[in-house]
């Protein structure tokens, strides 16, 4: 190996060790529940726990709802910005970046203040209303990722020409959006969807402060009271996140090579 290549390789190895060693250590620890032997006992206990299944299901449903609401909010917005309001693009990008700058705890306190039981819209006074609030909160948290993914997808097609072609064939806005635009940014929406899912599935702050039975607070609860199960849960959460990333790659690769109409 040339001496000039030693430096970069050393940096890569150190970086990999920094990420991989704790992961391996956590995984190894999660297997040591039974004294003197490796086993998947901690995983068995976690997966058999009804609370695990209930919280994971709850988070999955909220994640799916956040994905649907996010896509319905972001795709038409990004489409309209691209088609008619290009001058507003910097402003919209700034707004969508705000959730990265404003901590989740600030957002949730704002929600609680705005939508408490004595407000005009008392969402927190019912479980269903709080679930709605939680979903909206997750849409907000995922906004930077969803918007960027969709915006990139829209830039790859000539939105204006496709819109005009559909209009000249008699199509109205609804048909243009759902038959022409959405299918052509399908991969981008799915990328945003998987990122949203990965964020929502382990999110703690919003779910905890809104007192919802989500997977994030369950993780925290287990971590505070058990020894081996939290490690198993961490590995499961990690696997779910990586599965989402893998799916993004898979969907992206499987997508047809649509000709960009420029």
């Amino acid at each position: 190996m040339k001496s000039s290549k030693v430096g970069p390789w050393l940096a890569i190895i150190l970086g990999a060790l920094y990420f991989i060693v704790p992961l391996i250590a956590t995984f190894e620890f999660s297997l040591r529940m039974k004294r003197g032997q490796y086993s998947f006992e901690a995983y068995r206990i976690v997966l058999a726990d009804p609370q695990f299944r209930a919280t994971f299901l709850f988070s999955t449903i909220v994640a799916l709802a956040a994905i649907v609401v996010g896509a319905l909010l972001v795709v038409p917005t990004a489409y309209w910005v691209q088609l008619r309001l290009r001058r507003l693009r910097p402003l919209i990008e700034f707004i969508t970046l705000l959730p990265l700058v404003i901590p989740a705890i600030v957002i949730v306190f704002g929600y609680i203040r705005m939508y408490n039981s004595s407000s005009i819209l008392p969402l927190t006074s019912t479980a269903a209303g709080t679930n709605v609030l939680l979903t909206i909160g997750y849409v907000t948290l995922a906004l930077p990722y969803m918007y960027r993914a969709v915006d990139t997808g829209l830039r790859a097609i000539d939105v204006r020409v496709l819109t005009e072609a559909a209009q000249s064939l008699g199509a109205g806005w609804g048909r243009i959006l759902f038959r022409v635009i959405f299918p052509n940014v399908r991969v981008a929406v799915l990328s945003g969807a998987f990122l949203t899912f990965a964020i929502v599935i382990g999110e703690f702050t919003l779910a905890s402060l809104l007192n919802r039975p989500a997977f994030g607070p369950y993780l925290q609860l287990m971590g505070a009271n058990r020894a081996y199960e939290p490690s198993a849960l961490a590995i499961i959460a990690f696997a779910v996140t990586w599965a989402c990333m893998g799916l993004i790659q898979l969907v992206g690769r499987g997508a047809r090579g649509a000709t960009p109409v420029r």
Partner: peptide, 28 residues
């Protein structure tokens, strides 16, 4: 535009990439 019953062909083809040739022709 969608009320004028006008056919238009663009320089950039403007075929819908997500549809087959038959679906493109059938769109209108």
């Amino acid at each position: 535009p969608n009320q004028r019953q006008i056919g238009m062909v663009f320089q950039a083809y403007a075929l819908f990439p997500n549809m087959t040739v038959a679906d493109n022709v059938a769109f209108g």
